[in-house]
């Protein structure tokens, strides 16, 4: 199996494991949201609110 054939076969094998454009975009938005709002930078009080779903400082 030469290198070109190997690449061709691997490309075929992984084709169905490629994410859709919609998935790609969703993952990117999730990463960017987490990157700009990292949980470790949220105060304890707010973190608690965050976990319980109440988005307010107490």
């Amino acid at each position: 199996m030469n290198d070109v054939r190997f690449e061709e076969l691997m490309s075929l094998a992984l084709m169905e494991r490629t994410p859709s454009a919609h998935q790609m975009e969703r993952m990117k938005q999730n990463v960017l949201a987490q990157a700009s709002f990292p949980p470790e930078k949220i105060s304890q009080k707010f973190q608690h609110s965050f976990r319980t779903g109440i988005y307010a400082f107490r």
């Binding site: 992984l14 494991r17 994410p19 998935q23 790609m24 993952m27 999730n30």
Partner: peptide, 23 residues
């Protein structure tokens, strides 16, 4: 690289965890 990384995780775990791990 995201789709390649996704394909890597998908080939390890199937689709379920691939998205989380890629992120």
């Amino acid at each position: 690289y995201a789709s390649r990384v996704y394909a890597y995780f998908s080939s390890c775990f199937g689709g379920d965890s691939a998205e989380d791990c890629t992120q």
